[in-house]
Write a protein that binds this DNA or RNA. Sequence first.
DNA 1: AAATATTCTGCAACCCCGTTGCAAGTTCGG
DNA 2: CCGAACTTGCAACGGGGTTGCAGAATATTT
Lengths: 136, 136
Amino acid sequence: MDQLRDTLKVHHLRTTTCREDVLSTFINRKNALSHGDLEGALGENYDRVTIYRTLKTFLEKGIIHKVLDDEGLRYALCSHSCSEEKHQHDHIHFKCSACGETNCLENLHIPAVQLPEGYFPEHFNLLIQGVCPKCN
Amino acid sequence: MDQLRDTLKVHHLRTTTCREDVLSTFINRKNALSHGDLEGALGENYDRVTIYRTLKTFLEKGIIHKVLDDEGLRYALCSHSCSEEKHQHDHIHFKCSACGETNCLENLHIPAVQLPEGYFPEHFNLLIQGVCPKCN
DNA sequence: AAATATTCTGCAACCCCGTTGCAAGTTCGG
DNA sequence: CCGAACTTGCAACGGGGTTGCAGAATATTT
C-alpha cells in the first residue's frame, strides 16, 4: 500500500485510488496489459477516460513503457524506474500465440546491430512471437 | 503493368484496378504504408472498406507483411514473395522520428537470440527508431 | 459470344479505440 | 481549514477497423 504511494510520490504524482489500483494491477499480473485489460479489471470503478489518462501519465513519468504488438498497444512496468527525461529499455518482449500473454524478458537484451552509414538509432523494440513455457 | 497482373495471378487473385493501384502504390513509394496512407493516395477512387479488404487479402497471400509501429500498424511489400503458408521475415525495420517514414532494411537481419528453456520462437519483429540518413 | 459461377466492390451500419472540453470533485500545502 | 492546483466523470467527437448484403465485375465454360 505504502509502496504504491511512494512510487507515485517519487514521480511527483498525487495519490488517487485510480492510480493506486492501476499500479497494483500491473504489479499483481506480471504481464503486459492493454487498456482493455485494465478496463476489464477496473472498469466498474473508473471511467474509461480516466484509465486512458492514467496510462498516459504513467508513460510520461516513466512508470510504464509501451510494448508493441501486431494487434494493439500494451504497457508494462519499467523495472528500473525510468525518469520523465529518459526511458531506457533494451529488453526483449515475448508474445505467446497460444495464451496470448506478452511478457518482458528483462534479462535478455536486444543484441547490438550494425546499421549502415547515416542511421542514428535511439529506441529499440524487439517482439518475438511463439510459444511460451507454460503452453507447450 | 503486366508485372502487376502477374504478381496477382501468381497469388491466385483476380486482377482488379483497386488491387493494381494498391500494389503499384507500394512499389512506387518504397516505405511502409498505413491504411491511412493508401486512403490518402487512392481514397477518391475506392471505398475505405475495399482498401481494408485488399490489405487483408495481400497479407494472407503473402504479398505484404505487417510492420510494427508505436502508433499504428503499417504494411510493406515482402521482398522474396512469401506464400500463403509461410511468411518469412527476419529483417530490421527503421522508423525515422523526423520524417516519420518507416523502411525495411532488407539487408540487415535480426541477430540470433538465445531464449531461456521452454520458449519456442516463431516470428521476429525488430523496430529501431531514430534518425534516418535523409534527415540529419 | 453468351451464360454461368465465382469473386470483388460499395454502401450502410456498427463497435472499439483514443482524445478533448468542461464542470464538479479531490488532493495537498500553507 | 482554505485556496490553488490538479484529477475525475461526463458528453461528445473523430478515426480505425469489421460485417452483411445487394449489385457489379471477373473468369470460365460451352
